[in-house]
């Protein structure tokens, strides 16, 4: 099946554009909280990008990378939130 794979590549292009737009907010954001929000959103978009790329390469084992990325950046976001809150 060659046609559906090229369809998949269109979606990969759309999602990488979405990643780029959220990176723009992470760079531009006036306060620190804006940047942390942008990082949080970008994490979720990136997990999806990694899963779709794994489907494009037809490698099942690549899904582990997406899950590890999700876990660790969640911990990073919670650390930043606790710092802003005044805890930690």
């Amino acid at each position: 099946m060659t046609c559906p794979i090229s369809l998949c590549s269109i979606f990969i292009g759309i999602i990488s554009v979405a990643t780029f737009l959220s990176i723009v907010r992470a760079i531009k954001g006036p306060t620190g909280a804006d940047r942390v929000v942008a990082l949080d959103v970008m994490t979720n978009i990136t997990i999806v990008l990694l899963v779709l790329l794994g489907y494009y390469f037809q490698r099942f084992v690549y899904l582990d990378v997406a899950l590890v990325y999700g876990i660790l950046s969640f911990v990073g976001v919670i650390a930043a939130a606790r710092y802003l809150e005044g805890g930690l």
Binding site: I23, A26, I27, G29, G32, R35, V36, A38, L39, M42, T43, T46, L49, L50, L53, Y62, V65, Y69, S73, G76, A80, Y83, L84
Partner: peptide, 20 residues
């Protein structure tokens, strides 16, 4: 704090590039 977040962004993109 924003600089640390920007470093996190850099690390994320490096990870995606290794994946590609």
């Amino acid at each position: 704090l924003s600089a640390a977040v920007a470093l996190g962004v850099v690390s994320l993109i490096v990870s995606i590039l290794f994946y590609i």
